[in-house]
């Protein structure tokens, strides 16, 4: 075991006392991580859509400007949607936070290295795109600070959290996409959502 942060501890910390925050998770490990912290109607774990997690978060943040929207995804998933950093920066959503759990690996496919294992700086790319707050996190104190910034909700935020490349048992959310969508909308918008 390295002295790096452990992804499930990071996610548990970020989601503890989440209130009415809306949470989107990228496919693979981040979806298992948010489910490990507790399945929740206001979780939207992706089973596919690689490269799309941050944009799902943007659409949700623009639709719900008074709610905090938290996207938790992986480095491989974020690398597939780098253009969305530019799109998000231009929209300046005050209520959107993107947290990349960066283990420098494609975890679901055999732990192959991603570009971040070879120096690609995701937080630097987010900063260069123009996202208001960007940070790199690699200590428990950094995670606490990140949590404060997420829930303060002052401008779009992008965090690259360096985590250990540990292989963990999967914790699966429901995998029926229509169920995930409908329970999310019912929890957020009320029973009338089914009649929109």
């Amino acid at each position: 075991m390295s002295n790096k942060l452990r992804r499930r501890e990071v996610v548990e910390t970020l989601l503890a006392g989440r209130g009415d925050a809306l949470v989107v998770a990228g496919l693979g490990a981040p979806s298992w991580d948010i489910t490990h912290a507790g399945d929740h109607a206001l979780n939207f774990p992706l089973w596919g859509a690689m490269g799309g997690a941050a944009m799902v978060g943007l659409g949700l943040a623009l639709a719900q400007p008074k709610k905090r929207v938290l996207v938790i995804t992986g480095d491989g998933e974020m690398l597939m949607g780098l253009g969305s950093l530019a799109t998000i920066a231009v929209q300046r959503p005050r209520n959107l936070a993107i947290v990349v759990l960066d283990n420098e690996r494609y975890g679901e496919t055999g732990m192959q290295e991603t570009h971040t294992a070879h120096g690609v700086d995701l937080a630097g790319m987010a900063r260069a795109a123009g996202i208001a707050q960007t940070l790199r996190v690699n200590t428990p104190a950094g995670v606490s600070r990140l949590k404060r910034l997420i829930y303060a909700g002052k401008g779009a935020l992008f965090a690259q959290v360096k985590v250990d490349a540990e292989k963990l048992p999967l914790v699966l959310p429901p995998r029926d996409g229509a169920l995930l969508k409908n329970r999310f909308r019912a929890a957020l918008l009320g029973p009338d959502a089914a009649h929109q």
């Binding site: 659409g59 639709a63 253009g83």
Partner: peptide, 26 residues
Amino acid sequence: MRVVRLTSEQEGVALLAGAWLGGDKG
């Protein structure tokens, strides 16, 4: 209306999924 310029069209498919989750049509 909120116009969202994309870098690639696939971003729009994901954006509008999020929009619908939040109650917006797009």
